[in-house]
């Protein structure tokens, strides 16, 4: 708890700025997100499609190119030897940071492996970029590592199309984690996999995180996977962080109406009632609603929600939420408590 965060974003704003025929268009995909990820935890980032998850991930990785532009704020890594700015790394710093410290498990492994290269060659490409190593050494190391994943050495000589979907996903995870990175980003690692393979992948990620003592940042819209893996969950809506708490609190006592709907949409074994879905869709981010961005869809929307952006307030136990219902409550409590005393 007292360790400095391994990854910290401060008031991060990242916009897609495009200009065509003199018309400037700004899409505010990430708009003022602050979060701090502690070493060794599994931090989930949730939210529906189009809420800025992928953009936030690109910024946290420091892997962005125009039109995506960091406008304000900062992202810093701290691997126990001082802070690094993740948004302004030189090519050499990127090479030094990636894979040995910060790694990335991509979404869907169908096409992330070069189809014309043997698995062993791909491993050698990735490893030798970061650690000078002979072909023999990488082969030995990779074979040993793959064995932990239940993959035979023969996989090294195979081409990607010769492997099943589940094997390919395991190979990809192995490729991303072989250098024992301290910080792993997993982008929808279970999406597009069947449930049996999903379960294997979840267990694998959990084991790697435990064995290497790494920090895992899990980006997925799938609240079931979040519940299974994450220690803490942040909920994004329309480019803003609307709620963040430990997993139990998010599921048992969500405060933000959006989170409540997200949780409420999950089926449970007992009840047989149709799930209530939230009408509407996330707003277009080139012209987000004024005030609270959720107000057009919010069943509890008040006048104040249409004009004033609710601040992210910290509740007990580090639980953070941004909603006028809560702001009102804390204001009220603050205003009334002296009178009671």
């Amino acid at each position: 708890m007292d360790q400095p965060p391994i990854l910290e974003a401060r008031d991060l704003k990242a916009y897609y700025i495009t200009e065509a025929f003199g018309v400037r268009r700004t899409v505010k995909a990430v708009d003022g997100v602050s979060l701090a990820i502690r070493p060794g935890e599994i931090y989930g980032i949730a939210g529906e499609s189009g809420c800025g998850k992928s953009t936030l991930l690109k910024m946290l990785l420091g892997e962005f190119e125009p039109p995506l532009t960091p406008v304000e704020g900062s992202v810093t890594y701290d691997f126990g030897e001082g802070q690094h700015d993740a948004l302004d790394m030189s090519e050499g710093e990127v090479t030094a940071t990636r894979w040995s410290r910060v790694s990335y498990v991509p979404q869907g492994s169908m096409h992330v492996l070069n189809p014309v290269r043997r698995i062993g060659d791909t491993f050698h490409d990735f490893i030798s970029t970061h650690q000078p190593m002979s072909r023999r050494q990488t082969n030995e190391r990779v074979a040993a590592y793959l064995a932990e994943f239940g993959l035979r050495e023969g996989v090294l000589r195979a081409f990607p199309h010769q492997l099943s979907g589940g094997m390919r996903q395991r190979v990809t995870i192995a490729l991303a984690t072989i250098l024992s990175p301290k910080l792993i980003f997993a982008d929808e690692p279970t999406t597009a996999l069947d449930v049996v393979v999903q379960r294997g992948v979840i267990q694998l990620l959990k084991r790697i995180q435990r064995d290497h003592g790494s920090t895992l940042v899990l980006i997925t819209h799938d609240m079931g996977v979040q519940a299974n893996l994450a220690d803490r969950i942040a909920v994004l809506y329309a480019g803003k962080l609307v709620e963040e708490a430990d997993t139990r609190t998010i599921f048992k006592a969500p405060r933000h109406p959006y989170t409540q709907h997200l949780i409420g949409s999950l089926p449970t074994l007992e009840d047989k009632v149709a799930r209530v879905s939230l009408p509407g869709r996330p707003p277009a981010l080139d012209d987000p609603p004024s005030g609270c961005r959720f107000h057009p869809r919010c069943p509890y929307a008040m006048e104040v929600c249409k004009t004033i952006v609710p601040p992210l307030v910290t509740l007990e136990g580090g639980h953070r939420a941004a909603c006028h219902l809560i702001t009102g409550e804390t204001d009220h409590a603050a205003a009334t408590s002296p009178a009671l005393a």
Binding site: E63, E91, T95, R98, W99, Y104, H111, T129
Partner: peptide, 22 residues
């Protein structure tokens, strides 16, 4: 823009290697 080229870029593989082998 293919997935394997993007992945190799994120892993910071040298550009020369990406252009020729990927």
């Amino acid at each position: 823009t293919s997935d394997y080229v993007r992945f190799a870029e994120i892993a910071a593989l040298p550009k020369r290697k990406i252009v020729f082998r990927y």
